[in-house]
Design a protein around this nucleic acid. Structure first.
Length: 958
RNA sequence: GGGCGCUUAGCUCAGCGGUAGAGCACUACCUUGACAUGGUAGGGGUCAGAGGUUCAAUCCCUCUAGCGCCCACCA
């Protein structure tokens, strides 16, 4: 005997154990070797991560696909794994060291620190995997990979080395986005723009001196959002000030220390006479050139722009163009974003001797960039060279992880020539080899790849894939897959260059200690996304030619959020096409972002994060999964509300109780049940509806319309099977029906429940697996867990006759219920039902279904008459008139009003259709079936109107 | 500045050329033997606004207004 409600917590445990025991999610099961493969690679969550709503949605959708195809007989591989997440993980462990007051990263040293991170990973890195399992993710967990494990590392170095050989990876000295907090370079994608607007306003014109304290206070809160107008004195050829000044505006005053030019537009009439002159850089005293460059926009700022090549991407380019005029980069910031002047040779080069270097160094050297900012502004004001300060809205780049302002900084880094790799990636999508769903994302993909910049892949971190590059004392670099190979290449090359004597090389080759001293490995590690980009083939065993690689690559579908199209999808396309060389996946399904009820992005700082595990605890994993699938309409954000989850929890309860009802009524599965041999109309009807619902669900899943699929199941289970089939079957099951009919009904219900469990399983795997097990205890033996199928057979159709009969009964019941409710007839009042001159079929149906009609419509008896008795309520149901003799029970004025309303409604509909059919253009141009449909509708309406009018007239005569 | 998207019932959202839908909320009634995590009935929408295309527009096009996102932008 089943419990009264579904204990999801217990069932989740049981189902998980069953799947584990039976190896249900294993790819390459012996029974599927001949089956078509289906493969999805999981977007590997960060090892530091906890399951958030985005994961829940993403993995629910993948799981729906995988479970559906697995049930349909395919050999499914859902490849799981976790990402080592360079910065994030290093951060977590560093924080842990700090909290425990242990020696920090640097004190520990690289080797010990990395060991420490591995220890952390072993201890607490698997949390997210356990959470995915709780969600029900049907990954082949036996194949779990980690982006830093041995096999994947082998793939990474091979890829790096090969790209290097091909000239697609190179080292370059240029400006990078530098994160002063983590002290590493980051890629363009890891930079987020933050809008900033200050409030401080000051102008020299007003006469009041600058209130430096007030400014500092404002800047302490937000150092950005102001535009500062500086005046640089123009000097003559002898270096003496001419008295003229040129005004430049900046949002970063501290960078003026590194200014090496002032640029004006070549056509700007205001500055023609100044082009080629020099200015004295205030505070510093260095003489810098006024150059003509198109970059300068006369409309912006002061019209002339200061050029700081070492600290601004645009200025760097301008500087390159004007190198001859002295506009070389002068770096004035250190790795932590502090001003650095002492020992800064470039900075002092060309200084006038009468400047007070010591004063400047004392005031600024070693100061944080933002402290220096207000100091400089103050000093400029004191020098009388600050014209004004204005609030200025602009976007400031921040590190997406560190959340500090990013500095463009001149360093040596490794770059991937993304432009070359992007071409095949663009082509593959253009040719339709890989398709985005929804298609609109293709534009985003093309736009980005079309303008792609070199990808900075080196990171000054310790946790990650160390770059396989070794430097020799003679200034050469050797990029190889292994240390041994690098040494060998280095020695050979050293000899060739003449840097090493042959004998010396030989001696070195057999002395590991000296080799290690001679060649030093690049300290940097690779961007985490570099290894993620290889995920679809590295997880399948590449660079080995494994059976899995052969069988499952290209994968079928990638399911991911649009926020990582650039980070991940595009890069997988590039790497997959270059190394396999084939597309990594055929379809890319892009789903929405999960937001809170009000549409705000969930974030820890806003405190609006909903924890999926908490929801699973409260409502069950199935309810959460169903909600996410039902809301995953293409191209929309998912705004999650708890009420919705609760509703779907109730849905699970509903099905549970329907199953319980079946159990109580002896609905046991029957060996070899054949839907096409079923006789009873009601049973034939529900079998047809079930088959249709299953087909609808399958079609929707295959088209990635998850919401349609979920709704199709929901509607069938609740509104068709429970509301109508079970209710109409009750008299058969519980009354004195003919034993054969009873048996058939029982078998049908059991069969339909099996169909329901199957088509609901991709969405609610735990509930359905549990019900599958419970109902499996009776009847024929189950072949295995529901997770392995079968998906319901399709192709069975309801015949029209059956639909007409059951449909008429259902409509009749609904109509009677509606009128009774409207007229305020008490449920306890079992009224007679009189069929007025019924057709033969209606009479037959009414007799056949008298018990159900009685029960569901609160009808006491069913009679037939040629005319309605006076004062009876008349209804028209699919052309048949029926009467409820309620004279004296109901208020006839109310009934008149009701009929009038009905008539008016009918007339309105008729008028609309008549107008359309009366339109010559419509008749001439609309397709025939549309016209026929309108005609049919008109006839139906008119017939109904006639009967309604009759009823109304009869009422008038009373 | 460039691009993408949204505006449909009180709320959250489907639908996207031919009779406006769901869930939740709301109202009334129902302790009916699967289920009150339930049942029955009901109210509620000039489908943002203005033009246009079409026999026909919530759906296609243009514009306007509001909202959101992505990319670029530290004068």
């Amino acid at each position: 005997m089943m419990d009264k409600s579904f204990d999801f917590a217990a069932a989740e445990g049981r189902a998980s154990a069953l799947w584990e025991e039976t190896g249900a999610f294993r790819a390459g099961r012996p029974d599927r070797t001949a089956a078509q493969p289906f493969c999805v690679v999981i977007p590997p969550p960060n090892v530091t991560g906890n399951l958030h709503m985005g994961h829940a949605l993403n993995n629910t959708l993948q799981d729906v696909l995988c479970r559906y195809w697995r049930m349909s007989g395919r050999d499914v591989l859902w490849q799981p794994g976790v990402d080592h997440a360079g910065i994030a993980t290093q951060m977590v462990v560093e924080r842990q060291l700090m909290e425990r007051q242990e020696p920090d990263r640097r004190a520990l040293g690289r080797k010990a620190f990395v060991e420490r991170v591995w220890a952390w990973k072993a201890e607490s890195g698997g949390a997210i995997v356990a959470q995915l399992k709780r969600l029900g993710a049907s990954c082949d967990w036996s194949r779990e990979r980690f982006t830093l494990d041995e096999g994947l590392s082998r793939a990474v170095v091979k890829v790096f080395a090969q790209l290097y050989r091909e000239g697609l990876v190179y080292k370059d000295k240029r400006l990078v986005n530098w994160d002063p907090k983590f002290q590493t370079a980051i890629s363009d994608l890891e930079v987020v723009q933050v809008e900033s607007k200050g409030s401080f306003k000051w102008s020299r014109e007003d006469g009041a001196p600058l209130d430096a304290a007030a400014l500092a206070k404002v800047l302490a809160k937000n150092p950005n959002g102001h535009l500062y107008y500086f005046e640089y004195p123009v000097v003559d050829d002898g270096g003496d000030e001419t008295g003229e000044r040129i005004t430049v505006a900046t949002t970063r005053p501290e960078t003026m220390l590194g200014d090496t030019a002032v640029a004006v537009h070549p056509d700007d009439p205001r500055y023609q006479h100044l082009i080629g002159r020099r200015v004295r850089l205030p505070l510093v005293g260095r003489l810098i050139a006024i150059v003509a460059d198109e970059y300068s926009d006369p409309e912006k700022g002061a019209g002339a722009v200061k050029i700081t090549p070492a600290h601004d991407f645009n200025d760097f380019e301008v500087g390159k163009r004007h190198e001859a005029e002295g506009a070389r980069p002068i770096n004035i910031l250190d790795a932590q974003g502090r001003v650095t002047l002492r020992g800064n040779v470039d900075f002092f080069e060309g200084l006038e001797s009468d400047n007070d270097h010591a004063r400047l160094i004392a005031a600024l050297h070693g100061q944080d960039r933002f402290v220096a900012r207000s100091r400089i502004v103050e000093m400029m004001a004191l020098a009388g060279l600050l014209a004004r300060i204005e609030p200025h809205a602009h976007a400031v780049p921040h590190g997406d992880r560190s959340n500090v302002v990013i500095e463009p900084w001149l360093t040596d880094q490794w770059y991937v020539d993304a432009k070359t790799l992007a071409e095949p990636a663009i082509e593959a999508v253009r040719d339709g080899k890989t398709q985005f769903v929804p298609k609109t994302w293709e534009k985003t993909y093309f736009d980005w790849l079309g303008n792609i910049q070199p990808w900075c892949v080196s990171r000054q971190l310790w946790w990650g894939h160390q770059i396989p590059a070794w430097y020799a004392p003679w200034g050469a670099v050797y990029v190889e897959e292994t240390e041994e190979a690098a040494y060998a290449a280095g020695l050979a090359d050293g000899v060739e260059r003449g840097a090493l004597a042959q004998a010396e090389a030989q001696a070195l080759a057999s002395d590991p200690a000296r080799l290690a001293e001679t060649f030093t490995r690049d300290e940097d590690v690779l961007d985490t996304w570099f290894s993620s980009a290889l995920w679809p083939f590295s997880t399948l065993g590449w660079p080995d030619e494994t059976a899995e690689l052969k069988r499952f690559y290209p994968t079928d579908t990638l399911v991911t959020g649009f926020d990582i199209i650039f980070f991940w999808v595009a890069r997988m396309m590039m790497m997959g096409l270059h190394f396999m060389p084939e597309i990594p996946f055929r379809d890319v399904y892009i789903h929405a972002l999960v937001r809170d009820e009000r549409g705000a992005k969930m974030s820890k700082s806003k405190g609006n994060v909903i924890d999926p595990i908490d929801l699973i605890d409260r409502f069950g994993a199935d309810a959460l999964r169903f909600t996410l699938a039902a809301m995953a309409a293409q191209g929309r954000d998912v705004k999650l509300s708890e009420a919705r989850i609760e509703g779907y929890r109730n849905f699970a309860t509903k099905l549970w109780n329907a199953s319980r009802f079946a159990e109580m009524n002896g609905c046991v599965r029957v060996e070899g049940f054949d839907p096409s041999a079923v006789r009873e109309p009601l049973n034939r009807w529900i079998l047809g509806e079930a088959a249709q619902a299953a087909a609808e669900t399958a079609g929707a899943i295959e088209a990635y319309r998850f919401n349609d699929a979920a709704n199709a199941v929901y509607r069938f289970v609740w509104s068709v099977f429970c509301d109508w089939h079970l209710e109409l079957a009750k008299p058969v099951l519980q009354g004195p029906a003919d034993p054969a009919a009873k048996a058939e009904s029982r078998a049908t219900i059991a069969h339909v429940l099996d169909t329901i469990y199957a088509m609901l399983h991709p969405f609610m795997p735990f509930l359905t697996e549990e019900l599958w097990a419970i109902t499996g205890e009776t009847g024929p033996r189950r072949a295995g867990p529901l997770a392995l199928g079968p998906w319901p057979a399709q192709g069975f159709e309801v015949d029209a006759e059956v639909e007409a009969e059951i449909g008429w009964v259902a409509d009749l019941i609904a109509e009677i219920r509606s009128v009774r409710s409207e007229m305020g007839v008490a449920p306890s009042n079992l009224t007679p039902l009189i069929l007025i001159a019924p057709s033969e079929r209606a009479g037959k149906s009414a007799r056949a279904w008298s018990e159900s009609i009685g029960r569901l419509a609160r009808v006491g008896s069913i009679e037939t008459a040629q005319a309605a008795p006076p004062g009876a309520l008349l209804l028209v149901v699919r052309g048949e008139t029926v009467a409820l003799p309620l004279a004296g029970v109901v208020d006839l004025t109310a009934e008149r009003a009701r009929l009038d309303r009905e008539i008016a409604k009918e007339k309105l509909e008729i008028a609309k259709v008549v107008a359309k059919l009366g339109n010559d253009d419509f008749v001439a141009r609309a397709p025939e079936e549309i016209i026929a449909e309108h005609q049919e509708r008109l006839e139906t309406f008119q017939a109904r109107l006639v009967k309604l009018n009759n009823a109304r007239e009869r009422l008038e005569r009373i």
